[in-house]
Every structure is written in C-alpha cells, then in structure tokens.
Simulated assay, not measured.
Amino acid sequence: MRDRTSARTPSLTELGLGAAQLGNLARTTSDEDARGAVDAAWESGVRYFDTAPHYGLGLSERRLGAALAGRPRDEFTVSTKVGRLLEPSPETAHLQDDGGFAVPAAFRRSWDFSRDGILRSLEGSLERLGLDRVDILYLHDPDDHWTAASTTGVDTLVELRDQGVVKAVGAGMNQAAMLTEFVRRCDIDVVMVAGRHTLLDHSARDALLPLAQERGVGVVAAAVYNSGLLAAPRPPADATYDYQPASRELAGRAASIADVCERHGTSLPEAAIACPLLHPAVTSVVLGARNAGQSRTNADRLATAVPDALWSELTALGLLPDVTSPRTGRVRS
C-alpha cells in the first residue's frame, strides 16, 4: 500500500476506509461485520480511517475505536468531523433516526460551528473512539453555514492544530466550489471532496485541485463510486447516483466507460478508484466497506494496474478530461 502526502498534510495511505457503513448507513451492519471491515482493511495495508459523529449518531466512531483498540497508535491516521453536535434526545429514543442511518434516534444533530460546539464535539468523538487524539479534523458539510464555519469554525480548528491536539484541519463536503473558497481564504491543510472528483463528475478539476496543489493542501477523494453507479463492472438497472436513482444519461455514460474498461482488461470500479489518484493533489481515496469482503475488494481494485491507454481512449471519446499518469506516491516500508 502506497503512502502519499502534501506540503501540509500527514502521510496517508492511497486507500482509506470510510466508516459511514459502520454507523448503519441505510441498513443495519452487525458488530461482527463492522469489526471485520476494519480488520480486513488493516490486513490489506490501509492505515487511514475516516469517521464522523453524524454516522449513526456516534455508532461509527464507537465501532471504529473498538476495532482499532490495541493497534500501535502511531501506525494509523484517524479523521473525524465537527459541525454536527450530538445532543441527547431521550424523548425520541424509541424512534428511528431520520438522518439516513438505521439506529435509534437517541441523539439529535445540532449544527454548531462555534468554538464551544467544536470543542464539545471533539471531546465526544475522542470518548467514543477511545483515543487521546485524532490526526485530521474536518468541518462537516458547512454548505449553509459559510460565515460561521469560515470564521469561528476555522479559527478553532487552527487553535487545536497550533496546540498540537490535531495534526491537520480542513473541511469535508459534497461540493467543490465552497471547498475552493476554504482553500483560497482560510488556513487549512486538507479537504475531503465527496463525489466531485470521479469518472463522472469532474467539477473539482476546474479550480479546487489546481489551487490545492498550488498551496500544498491535500485533497482526499471520497464517494468515488458516486454512491453506486460506478461500483459494479456494469451499471445495474437500479443504480444510484449521489443517493438518487441514476438518470438515463448518467447510466449511459457509465456504460460507455465500462465498455472502454473492458477493452483494456480492467473494470469500471477499478478505473473509478484509479482515476482520482492520477491528480498529484490527491493524497488518498476513501471508500466505505460494510464487511471484510468489501474491504478486501476495495484493496484488490486499488492494486489492479490500469493501463495508460485506457485514459487516452476515454479522453479521445470525450468521456473524461485530459488526465496525467502514472500515480505518484511513496511505498510504505
């Protein structure tokens, strides 16, 4: 497993494990499967793990922390997020969470990018993770909270970084435009861009990636399957794109890319993982896994060599902007 870094970020393995499924995203994941997903990722060489309080109202953090317990702390990197503060809600504990996770609604999410809110959120995350520190702290989805997030939010993160509480700070979002503004205007080290630097969505390439590269800000690419459309060798009839049914036009583009992949002896999901890593600003691709088998599949797909001729043909057919290859990175010793 290769490592990558930037001028401002800690070294990350090219593949990271995204722990949303450990929080019962969309459906229940057993404790055994959640533990297996982390164990198999570790065995595959993954040393970067991303979570958030939002994922299962803290369940993801608790499960990830339990699975990492006992492993050498200096050998792995953990990121979590702030901005959605978990507040106890015993009056709704008998109901199901309405935030997309199959868990009881024993807490409610409260948007809070204040200094106090961020400090309280981090304290809760550390307790759930069973760790004395996290390595990267992201502002989580501040789409409707730019003013607070870019002032008190970033200021608090920088304070924590300067105190040595965290190594790197940034923001994680499902859009590229505001992340670009964070890089342009704020003292951050890393951004996580979800679904906007993929085989099908190239919006991060316009401004975010060049600016991040210029300023030494690392880019973590998440949701590179666009929530499902790129996850199988051929787009299924019920495929989703950004958690909604995929349009006929997008499904057709994915099928055309799959045709090219097959001609070059690779697969659509293998290309979906490899493509974001072609850009030198990208330090890691984060993929979710619900069990050990999915973690192993993710690692196997990353390890598959994708020929340069594939990118050339996709570009010639107008299915992909011009990209450069090969990958860059440092091999973990």
Rank of each mutant, 00 (worst) to 15 (best):
Gly170Asn: 03
His145Ser: 11
Asp141Glu: 13
Met178Ile: 07
Val158Ser: 00
Thr198Glu: 15
Val169Trp: 02
Arg196Lys: 12
Val193Gln: 06
Asp132Lys: 14
Leu139Lys: 01
Phe182Tyr: 10
Leu200Phe: 05
Ala177Glu: 14
Ser121Tyr: 05
Gly172Val: 06
His140Trp: 01
Asn174Tyr: 11
Thr147His: 10
Ala168Arg: 14
Ala204Ser: 14
Val193Thr: 15
Ala194Leu: 08
Asp143Tyr: 13
His197Val: 05
Ile188Asp: 12
Leu119Phe: 03
Met173Ser: 08
Gly195Asn: 08
His197Gly: 05
Thr198Trp: 11
Thr151Arg: 11
Thr198Arg: 14
Glu127Pro: 01
Met192Trp: 03
Thr147Leu: 12
Gly130Gln: 01
Leu139Val: 04
His140Pro: 04
Asp201Glu: 11
Leu137Lys: 05
Val165Gln: 09
His145Arg: 08
Leu208Trp: 06
Val183Thr: 13
Gly172Tyr: 02
Asp141Tyr: 03
Asp189Asn: 12
Gly130Glu: 01
Ala194Ile: 06
Lys167Trp: 12
Gly153Asn: 01
Trp146Gly: 07
Val154Gly: 00
Thr147Pro: 08
Asp189Met: 10
Val193Ile: 07
Lys167Gly: 15
Val191Ser: 06
Met192His: 10
Glu159His: 07
Ile136Val: 15
Ala176Ile: 07
Val190Gln: 07
Gly153Arg: 00
Thr180Val: 07
Arg161His: 00
Glu159Leu: 05
Leu208His: 06
Thr151Tyr: 03
Asp135Leu: 11
Leu126Trp: 01
Thr198Pro: 13
Ala148Trp: 02
Cys186Gly: 12
Trp146Val: 09
Asp135Phe: 11
Leu200Ser: 11
Asp132Gly: 07
Cys186Ala: 14
Gly130Ile: 04
Val166Lys: 11
Arg120Asn: 09
Thr147Glu: 14
Thr147Ile: 10
Leu139Cys: 02
Val190Arg: 05
Val154Ser: 03
Gly124Ile: 05
Cys186Lys: 10
Tyr138Cys: 04
His140Thr: 00
Arg161Asp: 02
Arg133Ser: 12
Ala177Pro: 04
His145Glu: 13
Leu131Glu: 13
Asp143Ile: 13
Ala204Met: 06
Asp132Glu: 13
Phe182Ile: 00
Thr152Ala: 11
Asp135Gln: 14
Leu179Lys: 03
Leu126Cys: 02
Pro142Asn: 03
Trp146Arg: 15
Asp132Cys: 02
Leu200Arg: 08
Gln163Ile: 05
Asp206Asn: 07
Gly164His: 11
Val134Lys: 05
Leu199Arg: 09
Asp206Leu: 13
Asp206Glu: 14
Gly172Ser: 15
Asp143Ser: 14
Glu181Val: 11
Val154Phe: 01
Phe182Asn: 00
Ile136Arg: 06
Leu129Ser: 02
His202Cys: 06
Trp146Leu: 15
Gly130Val: 01
Asp135Tyr: 07
Trp146Asp: 09
Arg196Pro: 03
Val190Ser: 12
Leu139Thr: 00
Ala176Asp: 15
Arg120Leu: 13
Thr156Arg: 01
Asp206Lys: 11
Ala149Arg: 04
Cys186Arg: 13
Leu129Phe: 00
Arg161Pro: 02
Leu129Gly: 01
Ile188Gly: 13
His197Arg: 09
Lys167Cys: 09
Lys167Tyr: 06
Pro210Tyr: 10
